[in-house]
Write a protein that binds this DNA or RNA. Structure first.
Lengths: 137, 137
DNA sequence: CTTGACCTTATAGCTGGGTACAGGGTCTAT
DNA sequence: ATAGACCCTGTACCCAGCTATAAGGTCAAG
């Protein structure tokens, strides 16, 4: 049984307007309509919306999220192109992971220093993310 | 020898206005001024700006970046509070890393399927990031 | 057969994070 | 001593990503 826009919005805890906005932006396919014009969503729309929200929190723009969602191997899609794009995204994500790990290593040192009550002034986090500066995003 | 705003902006490749904007926002301390009112930046400002840029790309809001930068153990700062906050940030960052890894694992499967010319329709990335939905961000 | 909670489109407005412009002062080189 | 490249403040504008409002249609409950 299909869901109304209000139901999916509630399930994912986003605004109804936001769902329609994503449709306009192309992140969500235009769903079936009832005779009276109401949108009817399949249940997996909820997963899609959740994915979008998570990806946003990871620093992806809506445009990028759209690209991620469009990646797939379908019957007649150029396989090579998809593979290339996919590998590009993997690189990008790997870089993000790398940066986050550096941040976390530094935060770990800081927490340790705290626990040991060793006052280490000078913002400690600044060390994280030095180097590899060119080619930023 | 201190740097002018134009010099730091050039070094980090951001707009001069952006540097001033960060000062207004409190991400950058108001620097010394020359008698004529010119800002004089110490060299480590460059590192700080680079950190800000990277952190932005990882989905941190300026507000959060500010908090990260303010974390430090200083002489009389409540050590416990800093440690607690730091551990909170670590959790948050770890969650981001976890999510990114899920995305990348999925992208890896996709690339493999591409290479093997195995058409797997149905957007494969939707599987990544399922579960653990409550308490988002 | 009406009330109230839904849905529709269209358009306007808000927040975050900048970016540009106006109007003016400064500094260095020639 | 003046041109040109910088700096200053203040204000206005821009884009992404929503979010709210207006004006109206739908539908289930009573």
């Amino acid at each position: 049984m299909p869901l109304t826009i209000g139901q999916v919005a509630l399930a994912v805890d986003v605004n109804v307007q936001t769902v329609r906005y994503y449709e306009r932006r192309g992140l969500l396919a235009a769903p079936q309509r009832t005779v009276s014009g109401y949108r009817q969503y399949p249940e997996d729309t909820i997963g899609r919306l959740r994915f979008i929200r998570h990806a946003k929190g990871l620093g992806f723009a809506l445009r990028e999220i759209q690209e991620l969602l469009e990646l797939r191997v379908s019957r007649r899609t150029a396989c090579d192109a998809v593979e290339r794009k996919t590998r590009e995204k993997i690189e990008l994500v790997e870089q993000k992971i790398y940066d986050l790990r550096r941040i976390n290593r530094t935060l770990g040192h800081l927490a340790a220093a705290c626990a040991a009550r060793r006052p280490t002034d000078d913002c400690p986090i600044l060390g994280a993310l030095e180097e590899h500066d060119e080619s930023d995003n």
